[in-house]
Design a protein around this nucleic acid. Structure first.
Lengths: 150, 150
DNA sequence: CGTAGAATCCGAATTAACTTCGGAATCCGG
DNA sequence: CCGGATTCCGAAGTTAATTCGGATTCTACG
């Protein structure tokens, strides 16, 4: 993980389709060297994948919310079962498992408020282990693409 | 946005480096057609970008937390200034602007607990508009890669 | 220092993919 | 049924990815 590797990670976080040649030229190294570096970064688990990002509104899911959830009892079995349940819900796009008062923070993307209401009332509150739910609508969600080393 | 477009978005969300030829073959269309479809999806804003994903632990930021923040007064000027401040913090990887009791949910990735403590005490609580902070450590964060239409 | 071994890097050649574009096919409104 | 517009295809040309043998650099140890 030298300066070259960091630069490559940064460039690929910014644009996952930037060509190998282009990056090699930007860094002043040979394309074959650049390719080998990136292969090593993948192999070693620094780069975990490449993904396209889709506009949520464009695919009919323009409303986002975060739902704080408390489950009882907060045992491993209950937590893991509830997490598996969340993962299978198509409305869920991200799950935080937390310390503190709430056990989960569930990030959902839905069609509209009716859809959101249905998710909370018809899916979440159907679960007997669910002890408490607080839903907040998301006005805006910013996600940083480039994340540098500490 | 027909069935072909949805399939392409799904495939590229899963693997942003999947080749055009490969996807064309999987869908039974010509590579040139496939390319044109993807160009149109980008042009129309459905596909917003391609990004590499890096392992946070591998880049020395293995500890995540979500910080619920309330600012006073919750005016546009204050909210926007605080958001701009958050965006400039390198520890912040994602920001939710919310309805409800808290105004922001700040997702941070830091080196260790000392680093987290420093972020909260030395950066956030330095801001005079900050009225309330609650920090929760993240045990686990799952992010769905493939997000289908509603 | 000097050296041997390992790791890294390079560059040319091969392979594969992207991209363009003219023409055929299809769709759709009148 | 017809005309126009859109979409789709496939071949050709361009560019990029990938491989690999040799040269260079680094490193540990005598």
């Amino acid at each position: 993980m030298d300066e070259l590797d960091s630069a490559l990670v940064r460039m690929l976080q910014e644009d996952g389709r930037r060509t190998n040649r282009d990056m090699a030229q930007a860094l002043g190294i040979a394309p074959s060297t650049c390719l080998e570096r990136i292969r090593a970064l993948r192999q070693s688990g620094v780069l975990t994948g490449f993904h396209a990002e889709a506009d949520l509104a464009a695919i009919g899911r323009g409303l986002q919310a975060v739902i704080a959830v408390r489950v009882r009892p907060p045992t491993r079995a209950v937590i893991e079962a509830f997490q598996a349940f969340l993962e299978r819900m198509p409305e869920v796009i991200s799950i935080f498992v937390l310390t503190g008062n709430d056990d989960f923070l569930v990030h959902v993307a839905v069609r509209d408020t009716d859809h959101l209401h249905a998710v909370v009332l018809d899916k979440l509150t159907k679960r007997p282990e669910l002890a408490d739910v607080r839903t907040s609508v998301v006005y805006n969600h910013l996600r940083k693409k480039v994340i540098g080393p500490a």
